[in-house]
Design a binder for these strands. Structure first.
Length: 552
RNA sequence: GGGCGCGUGGCCUAGCCUGGACAGGGCGCUGGCCUUCUAAGUCAGUGGUCGCGGGUUCAAAUCCCGCCGCGCCCGCCA
């Protein structure tokens, strides 16, 4: 799995024999595979960097890993022996076992969108980043449990209930829950803007609800459940699933135990209680309120309860959160250090998606819904498929797979903390740096294997000498490195970049290296390469949560 | 006002953590490549004061300081 890193380690060992202990960096392609710049040694050795590099290069002998070690100016460059590389890479990906170590349990919480309406594309950035991160962690060896924290307590839900209870008109039962009930939520907010005094009624609902009013509880469970089901349906279309939905209301009993665990840090003000952040050495905000003066709980308290509860299941946790949660999260983490010092809690933050005309908002109804985007994507794919002779059902299946993969790739291909402005044309781009480009490349590899009509038997790695073959092999060797970096930095976009590079390189190979018409020995080794590539590309595609297809 | 993040060719973007060899891609535009493994592909060309100004260094898109622009947060909302 970590082929490239094993080569790197070997280069380090060779240098170590010369008395140099250092990390070796990747070289620019035209100079070699790994490089060691000698500038820093100049003072100590009292020689020019170029001289030092020359001496080092001539004293390190080529071996099974490196065929050439040469100095270019002040750099010592290592060249990988391609026959060793070819055999290693191909055998690795032809085998079913990528030899991934087991790394224990981790909980990834993502999406957790308030169940007040259909999922819009802004929230979807959370889902896609979270789901991809979870898949990458799994690939790295973690036992991942994916959570959705369901907000069925608090003001938003009380507002939703108020809307449904008092504004019933033009109800359309044929609509899916999220589309059906969001109308009341939006209308409720409009009314509250004009009549702030109605706020009292909402407070009353909230209070009754939290004190355990069974009628309200049942209603909330029903409506929130219906909306959540809708959101879940939308996410299924993107290939996103959860292991567990944790309802906030279920944590209220635990939440009420938190204050005594934090005794000495809590203060009271007009009947409301807050955590005194100065006392626990927190900077950024002094008071985080736990209880309203009417005794109802606040999100901060319930979120502490949720994290405490999670930490009993797993010591490792990652939350995928919008950038608006940075301060909140910092405080939660601080509290967790007190309550459960053994656990590690990390966050993966992302910037908001905006529309060209401004912010997205469920309340104001200004948003692009995920379902609409998927639908539009599918119809654009069907348009392209007009020239194909596949059966209709296959076309529809392809359309779904291409559409959702295009959207997933578009979102995860961008660095998480970069602001994003949503544009239909870009989200549904099918060429260049896009999801379909990657799927298409996989289909091409499949096509070659399908038409080769030869069984794969032994191959000779020595025959893989074409520059495009070597470049492809090197990229294939880097999969483990990319997964590792992506996990350590919590940056799923690195894998998307890798997927593109890998696919792009396969297309260069495809252009210059015919497989089916090649001479027998070359054909065998190229088939082995294509098969190994297909396995790897398929694994990358699935780790990105996209769909692989034999034909498209 | 304070804190955090972002600022790379007409547009979108990688690289920034761990400073090194001419800043990679994609879209667009111009011109090529389908009797040959799917042209959702590919080749060539076009286009960049890496927001601005200082500093550190043999070397800065990358590190430090100060500005400017944009976003987010600073609620008894979530």
């Amino acid at each position: 799995m970590f082929i490239w890193e094993d080569f790197r380690k070997h280069a380090s060992e060779l240098l170590k024999k010369e008395g140099i202990t250092t990390e070796i960096q990747d070289a620019r392609e035209e100079y070699g595979d790994f490089t060691y710049p000698t500038f820093t040694l100049a003072k100590e050795y009292k020689k020019s960097p170029a001289e030092i590099a020359g001496d080092l290069a001539s004293s390190i002998e080529p071996d099974n890993f490196f065929s050439k070690i040469e100095a270019i100016g002040p750099y010592v460059n290592f060249h990988i022996r391609s026959s060793t590389l070819a055999k290693w890479v191909i055998d690795t990906y032809l085998s079913d076992d990528l030899k991934i170590p087991s790394r224990g349990k981790i909980i990834v919480e993502h999406t957790s969108a308030n169940p007040t309406g259909p999922l819009h594309i802004g929230r979807t950035r959370n889902s896609i980043i979270g789901d991809t991160m979870a898949r990458i962690l799994k690939r790295y060896g973690y036992d991942v449990e994916v959570h959705y924290f369901v907000n069925d307590v608090g003001k938003q839900v009380a507002t939703l209930l108020w809307g449904i209870l008092y504004l019933k008109e033009n109800d359309d039962e044929s609509l899916r829950g999220d589309y059906r009930f969001v109308r009341y939520y939006q209308k409720a907010y409009k009314i509250l803007e004009k009549h702030p005094e109605k706020e009292m009624e909402i407070q009353e609902i909230l209070k009754r609800y939290e004190s355990g009013d069974s009628v309200l509880r049942d209603l909330a469970k029903k409506y929130v459940g219906d909306i959540l089901k809708g959101i879940e349906e939308s996410l299924k279309r993107l290939n996103i699933h959860f292991d567990r939905f944790v309802w906030e209301s279920s944590l209220i009993p635990l939440a009420k135990e938190i204050p005594q665990m934090l005794e000495g840090y809590i203060s009271e003000e007009n009947g409301a209680y807050y955590l005194d952040m100065k006392k626990i050495g927190f900077e950024g905000k002094d008071k985080f309120y736990l209880y309203r003066k009417d005794g109802t709980t606040l999100y901060f308290l319930r979120d502490i309860a949720y994290h405490l509860w999670k930490s009993k299941i797993s010591k490792n946790m990652i939350d995928v959160l919008g950038e608006d949660h940075k301060l909140h999260f910092k405080a939660i983490r601080k509290v967790m250090e007190i309550l459960e010092p053994d656990c590690t809690l990390d966050a993966l933050f992302y910037s908001f998606v905006r529309l060209p005309e401004g912010k997205m908002s469920t309340r104001k109804g200004q948003a692009v819904y995920l379902d609409d985007l998927l639908k539009e994507g599918e119809s654009r794919v069907m348009e392209i498929l007009k020239t194909r002779t596949y059966p209709q059902s296959e076309k529809e299946s392809i359309a779904k797979k291409v559409s959702r993969s295009a959207i997933r790739f578009h979102i995860v291909n961008m660095q998480e903390d970069k602001p994003m402005i949503f544009r239909w044309e870009k989200a549904l781009s099918f060429d260049g740096e896009s999801g379909p480009f990657i799927q298409y490349t996989y289909a091409r590899a499949s096509g070659i294997l399908r038409k080769s009509e030869v069984d794969l038997n032994t191959y000779n790695p020595e025959t893989l000498t074409h520059p495009e073959e070597i470049k492809l092999l090197k990229l294939m060797a880097k999969y483990g490195t990319v997964i590792m970096k992506s996990v350590n930095a919590r940056e799923p976009h690195l894998l998307a970049k890798y997927a593109y590079d890998l696919a792009s390189q396969f297309n260069q190979f495809y252009r210059d290296c015919p497989v089916i018409t090649a001479d027998d020995d070359i054909k065998q080794s190229r088939l082995a390469l294509v098969k190994a590539f297909k396995n790897l590309m398929g694994d990358v595609i699935e780790t990105l949560g996209m769909d692989k297809m034999e034909k498209m």
